[in-house]
Design a protein around this nucleic acid. Structure first.
Length: 267
DNA sequence: AATGGGACCTGCGCGC
DNA sequence: TGCGCGCAGGTCCCAT
């Protein structure tokens, strides 16, 4: 499932591969991924246009066409962009740039969405989104968390609170910070919060460097797997020994989400 | 204010 | 080998 590092990887690759490319045709095989307008209207609006730039806010991709025309993509759980002229599994829609340049939007669970907007900043998901973790200073991060009574892990994943962190990176950063995912934020000392800040940034940066975590269907736009799953300490490692202390990693559902943690390393 | 559960959707892993 | 069941998960929405 794509979180900030995966979406950033895709952003960067799309920027390189499709900016300046003219959309010659769009083939829609499953119109459910198009939100807000009909497939016909979607095609009419985009065919003949060029992508100008690709940016990211949280887990949302913003493909700029003109100052008042944007394609906004949310991959949700299983959405991927794949650059390929072959038939692709779960392909829902293809942007045709030329005979040898096709961009598929594939999504096995069909939760992902593509929409056309004239101002992406007006979208509720954007307006209600918390700050970018990689742009926050330590002081801002600590101020943001201070006084919250919620459990730390669901708060890290709350997009209204902090943008881009999902189930993988919330778990991984708490492992490195040595914090139990069920600790309430107001029980954390400044020093512990500071550790969460430092480890979150480290984990996100390292994951971007490794092109994300390929769990589920996530691939980069060339169809390559991200390598960060090799570095996972707790995510989907329940029943296995902790890589630091050999204690068996536990799994617990916290606020409805499966959560792995080391009962020895995380207090 | 904060938490919980359902809905959306379907591939996949598991048990038999 | 094949079938059926239920889990997983990001986000939104409603209820408590």
């Amino acid at each position: 499932m794509p979180e900030l590092p995966e979406v950033e990887t895709i952003r960067c690759q799309l920027e390189r591969e499709i900016v300046g490319q003219k959309i010659k045709d769009i083939i829609v095989t499953d119109a459910r991924v198009i939100k807000g307008v009909s497939a016909q209207k979607f095609k009419e609006t985009l065919i003949g246009q060029k992508f100008n730039s690709v940016s990211r806010r949280g887990k949302v991709l913003i493909l700029k066409i003109k100052s008042d025309l944007f394609l906004v993509a949310h991959l949700r759980l299983t959405g991927v962009f794949i650059l390929s002229t072959e038939k692709e599994k779960f392909s829902k829609l293809v942007f045709v740039f030329s005979k040898d340049k096709h961009l598929h939007f594939c999504d096995s669970r069909v939760f992902g969405e593509l929409r056309i907007v004239d101002d992406w900043q007006k979208l509720p998901i954007i307006k209600e989104m918390g700050p970018e973790p990689l742009s926050l200073t330590k002081a801002e991060f600590i101020r943001l968390f201070t006084g919250k009574k919620t459990k730390i892990k669901p708060l890290l994943m709350d997009q209204h609170f902090l943008a881009g962190v999902g189930n993988i990176y919330a778990q991984e950063c708490l492992f490195f910070a040595g914090i139990h995912p069920e600790r309430t934020v107001d029980s954390l000392s400044k020093e512990e919060l500071s550790r969460v800040y430092v480890e979150l940034k480290k984990v996100l940066k390292k994951a971007i460097q490794e092109k994300g975590s390929s769990v589920d269907s996530y691939r980069d736009i060339q169809g390559q797997e991200g390598r960060y799953a090799y570095f996972h300490q707790v995510y989907q490692r329940d029943g296995k020994p902790c890589l630091k202390c050999k204690t068996i990693i536990q799994r617990k559902v916290i606020s409805g989400r499966g959560t792995g943690f080391c009962p020895t390393c995380q207090k």
